[in-house]
Amino acid sequence: MKRRFLLRRAAAAIAAAAFPLVPVWSGAAIAKRREHRVEIGDFEFSPAALEVSVGDTIIWVNHDITPHTATATDGSWDTGELANGAEARIAVTANTGSDYFCAFHPVMKALLAISKSATH
């Protein structure tokens, strides 16, 4: 009986050492990455102003007949040519430029409101 008790205690001690428990509700901030969609249609980016955070991903989808791009004004990122129906993804980093336009149709402009914090 005593021996069984001691064996159980030893097993518990080994388990605790091998698998330390950390409560998931520790109160520490958890980064949550989001995906956002920008629809390109009738020569407009929609939404024209998009709130994003570092770590998020933005997906541009072209619904127009003509090809478009989404190109940062400061040159920091570019989706490349998007044909009708095509989409492209850009990951938001601390260096992602906020203003962008269509390199083929400069009248098309939009912006990203980038939050530097990745927490929500």
């Binding site: 007949i65 003509t66 090809p67 083929f104």
Partner: peptide, 14 residues
Amino acid sequence: ARTMIRDHTAVNEQ
């Protein structure tokens, strides 16, 4: 000019 080629070609294809 490049935009004209891209866009008019796309419209013609449609």
